[in-house]
Write a protein that binds this DNA or RNA. Structure first.
Length: 480
RNA sequence: GGGGCAGUAGUCUAACUUGGUUAUGAUUCCGGUUUCGGGUGCCGGAGAUUCUGGGUUCAAAUCCCAGCCGCCCCA
């Protein structure tokens, strides 16, 4: 049950380090099925915190939770042409029921647009039925053929998927951007991971979407990862699934749709961004345990008083709304416990021993920046402001790190070599053409990641790769 | 899709090159004792189909083949 030391350093081998941290902090474990992880209570607790935070946001704009079947008949999955082409290579199929072959094979949902929109077409008849905004917290299966990775790329992934139907293009557009805003605040404010917010290119957008938005995070190896995504589907699916309504003027209209989701991947990104060679470093807002109280017992007469004192601190912090735990196991030394909670990334450790008991103080140790200091018991509410301060400073540090990894590049050769070797995340002026992106992928293995939403001054008049007219600035990087 | 590297108690590992008795050590786990302010020391105990299957051999963790799993590189 106990965390052991890490085998690899973060600097030397990021992926070995990452796997090891996830295993030893008891967030996840391998299962007997390739690409399917086991989420242990400590890891799953972070998902529950995510759910609580985002669910409230979703409901604030009228989203309702729902549940649709895990299995999707092939005829539904193939209704929207671009969609099925995008997902076909990685769909897992159910072909047998007991020992009988099924007449029609069933896809295990890679995403639920198709089965949900089949119902939407039954439920939407009038403009009064709109907007219809449903969400499900579930998992999806994508049969990755490349190597799989804990949290970042599994075959089964914990996520939520929300699906909106609207009477106007404007409403759908607004909804896709509102979702993007939820994700930005989740990733930045809860996970303390800075993101680049923007739009995906034609090549990288969701299969079947009119437009895809993303919040993109930068990792310590100069890769980027899409932490969450929001799609403006336009009328592509409503036409394929015949989702239409009678408007105020008694004429038939197809709905405008959105779909948006985020997954456990965002948590994986958080681990990569913040952790160090002693294990996880959790931002307080995502930490299942924000403060751990460790009594230092000496087997003397004061032990009982120290325990009572520790309990008092626990109760007090708990009443202040802190997620706090008391570790009074006597079979482990204090030093051992410090190391274990370092591995698990607990933001604040408080030791209470004879010294604290007699002086009515607490001894604070922070995981982030490894601060150590005493405070008076009467100032115990300072612990909550310390948690806020840690949250803020972790974000600022990560933001500075992200900015240091971004290079503005105008030179074609430098762009290609730097991108190929993941020496930086490159911000360039780009034409946005599909052929150009294909060319970039062929020569570097990397793709466009995100085009900022705000109007920006062009870095150059010419596209960094093909030399034609540049239309906007875009970030390029290797990605997970 | 193509190529490369690895697989030995929960974890890390020795033995493999050059086949040979009961598979090495640490850690972890259990009982006891001593400790406890950054992984305490000691005593005892437990934990292995040496990834799976096949082949070569008197004899396989060790050599060969296939598969599985993990990692890396290329498409």
């Amino acid at each position: 049950m106990c965390a052991e030391k890490l085998k690899e350093t973060k600097e030397k081998n990021l992926i070995d380090w990452y796997n090891d941290v996830l295993l030893r902090s008891e967030m996840v474990d391998f299962s007997e099925v390739k690409g399917f992880a086991v989420y242990r209570p400590y890891g799953y607790a972070m998902w529950e915190i995510t759910q609580t935070y985002l669910d409230a946001k979703f409901k604030s704009i009228g989203t309702q939770n729902t549940y649709f079947p895990l299995l999707i008949p092939e005829k539904l999955l193939t209704k929207e042409k671009n969609h099925v082409e995008g997902f076909a290579p990685e769909v897992a199929w159910v072909t047998m029921g007991g020992d009988r072959r099924l007449d029609e094979r069933l896809a295990i949902r890679p995403t639920s647009e198709t089965i949900m929109y089949d119902s939407y077409s039954k439920w939407v008849k009038s403009y009064r039925d709109l907007p219809l905004l449903l969400n499900q917290w579930n998992t999806m299966v994508r049969w990755e053929t490349k190597e799989t990775r804990f949290l970042l790329r599994g075959r089964e992934n914990l996520w939520h998927e929300a699906h909106g139907a609207f009477s106007s293009k404007e409403d759908a557009g607004k909804n896709a951007l509102a979702a993007l805003d939820f994700y930005k605040s989740y990733v930045q404010d809860i996970l303390a991971v800075p993101v680049i917010v923007g739009m995906k290119s034609e090549t990288e957008k969701f299969a079947g979407a009119y437009r895809t938005y993303t919040v993109e995070a930068v990792l310590p190896n100069n890769f980027t990862s899409q932490a969450a995504t929001s799609h403006d589907l336009g009328q592509n699916f409503s036409k394929a699934f015949d989702i239409k309504f009678l408007d105020e003027n008694n004429s038939w209209q197809y709905v405008y749709q959105t779909s948006w989701g985020t997954s456990m991947r965002a948590i994986g990104v958080m681990v990569l961004v913040h952790g160090d060679n002693n294990g996880l470093i959790l931002p307080p807002k995502i930490a299942p345990v924000q403060v751990v109280v460790i009594p230092i017992l000496k087997g003397g007469k004061t032990d009982k008083e120290i325990k009572d004192y520790a309990q008092k601190i626990l109760d007090k912090l708990s009443s202040l709304g802190v997620r706090v735990k008391l570790d009074d196991r006597e079979t482990f030394s204090a030093g051992w416990k410090f190391n274990e909670y370092d591995m698990k990334g607990v933001p604040i450790k408080i030791d209470v021993g004879e010294r604290e008991l007699s002086s009515k103080t607490l001894f604070i140790r922070t995981r982030f920046n490894a601060e150590k200091y005493s405070i008076d018991l009467k100032d115990i509410d300072k612990v909550t402001s310390k948690l806020d301060e840690i949250q803020k400073n972790m974000f600022l540090k990560a933001k500075k790190d992200m900015e240091s990894r971004i290079t503005i590049e105008k030179d074609r050769d430098k762009f290609v070599s730097s991108l190929k070797d993941a020496k930086a995340v490159l911000k360039v002026a780009w034409c946005g053409e599909k052929e150009c992106e294909t060319g970039i992928k062929d020569s570097t293995g990397a793709t466009s990641r995100v085009r900022p939403l705000d109007k920006e001054v062009l870095i150059s008049e010419k596209c960094v790769f093909c030399g034609k007219k540049a239309n906007f600035n875009t970030f390029f990087a290797q990605s997970y």
